[in-house]
Simulated scan of single mutants.
Amino acid sequence: MSRRGWVLFAAMGVLWGIPYLMIKVAVEGVSVPMIVFVRTAVGAAVLLPLALRAGRPTWLRDRWKPLLAFATIEIMIPWALLSDAERHITSSMTGLLIAASPILAVVIGRFTGDAERLGLARWAGLAIGIAGVAVLAGPALGDGSPWAIAEVLLVALCYATAPIIAARRLSDVPSLPMTAICLGGAALVYAAPAALTWPQTLPEPRVLAALAGLALVCTALAFCVFFALIREVGPSRALVFTYVNPAVAVTAGVVVLGEPLTASIVAAFALILAGSVLATAQRPAKDAATGAPVGSRG
């Protein structure tokens, strides 16, 4: 990987590892619809002008149904559930539970037509990852936060499902216009609920800073860096940074917010990360004539 690729990779590990911290701060002063609206509206305002440079989205008429499904499952539902869940559980726990998304993606793919055979290592990865989720979620269930845990796991399920829709129905759609349109549509959906729950007094500076960070840094800038990373290293390598996000989320929660770093959190992180790596590992294809691996990257 080039130096530029490593820089973009590191940036994405941070940019999509800190939203949980910022959401935790934002929910202290504004409503859930307000958080989602600000994040999507500002993100769309930044990305739409960039997307329009590529011309009118002529593909929109034919692809609006899968695009609507993708926007709903990737943005509209999970961003609201995340914000509501973090009113009750820590940001570090939220980030770790979301890390189960790759494991859920393997399960969903298996039941929706993915013909790839799961070997022993991938089955072991699924079991290890699920064990990690149980280690993390078990104590929280006993502390009276079962609904918050369910919300985050539903978010993980959404994050596992949306890429499958994109890969199967939107693979030839340009990423930047697609993202800008999805953010704009989500902003329209949340505009009325945000207006109805608009704060009567100006929120504290730290809440305003968290909202600005979510919108400008974790959404608009993050998507721009993500697209640059895809162009630099390809889509498969670009997604490896998702294994770094949980560590960033836990570190940010512990250092900035003083959230506890318990033995169960460390154990769950190790189990979920190991399970995700094993469950998503792909066996190299074999050349029919020589039996040698093909398509490997140097």
Rank of each mutant, 00 (worst) to 15 (best):
A210V: 04
G29V: 12
W6M: 13
F37W: 14
A140Q: 15
S276Q: 02
A80W: 08
A279S: 06
A131N: 00
T290G: 07
V248D: 07
A80T: 09
G295S: 02
A160M: 11
A209D: 08
D84Q: 15
A166G: 13
V255I: 15
I77T: 06
L81E: 07
R110T: 14
G13N: 09
A115E: 14
P246N: 07
T290C: 02
E116T: 07
W59R: 00
I89G: 07
A209C: 09
L170F: 05
I130F: 13
A45M: 14
Y20T: 12
G138E: 10
G29E: 13
V248I: 14
I149A: 11
V207N: 07
F226V: 01
T179C: 01
V189T: 10
S171F: 00
A71L: 05
F111C: 11
P235Q: 04
A279T: 02
V106T: 01
P139M: 02
A228M: 02
A85S: 12
L208E: 09
Q282T: 13
L120M: 13
V152N: 01
A270K: 04
A137T: 02
W147V: 14
S2F: 00
T161A: 14
V217D: 04
E259G: 00
A51L: 00
I149Y: 10
V14H: 05
L82T: 01
A247P: 09
N245V: 06
I230R: 08
L188Q: 04
G234W: 05
V294H: 03
L15M: 03
T90H: 13
S145R: 13
A194R: 07
P102Q: 11
G55T: 06
R117W: 06
Y20I: 06
L188R: 00
A99C: 08
V152A: 13
G253A: 12
G291H: 03
L261V: 14
I128P: 05
I35A: 08
A263S: 11
G95S: 10
D114G: 14
S145D: 15
A10W: 03
A268R: 02
V217S: 05
L154C: 15
Q200H: 12
A45P: 03
V256A: 14
V14K: 01
Y243M: 09
G125W: 00
A137Y: 13
T161R: 03
A191Y: 05
A11I: 00
Y190H: 11
G13E: 01
L271W: 10
A215Q: 04
S83C: 09
A215C: 08
W6Y: 13
P57N: 00
T280W: 07
G17D: 12
A247S: 13
V27S: 05
T219E: 02
L183F: 15
V254I: 07
H88P: 08
A270W: 00
C182Y: 00
P49C: 04
A166Q: 15
A191N: 08
A270Q: 12
A192E: 11
M22G: 15
A228T: 00
F111M: 11
W198K: 09
V152G: 05
D287T: 02
F70K: 06
T94A: 15
A288P: 11
D143K: 12
R63P: 04
F70G: 05
W147G: 06
A215G: 04
L60K: 10
V248T: 10
Y190W: 13
S31H: 08
L170C: 04
W16F: 12
G142W: 10
T197Q: 15
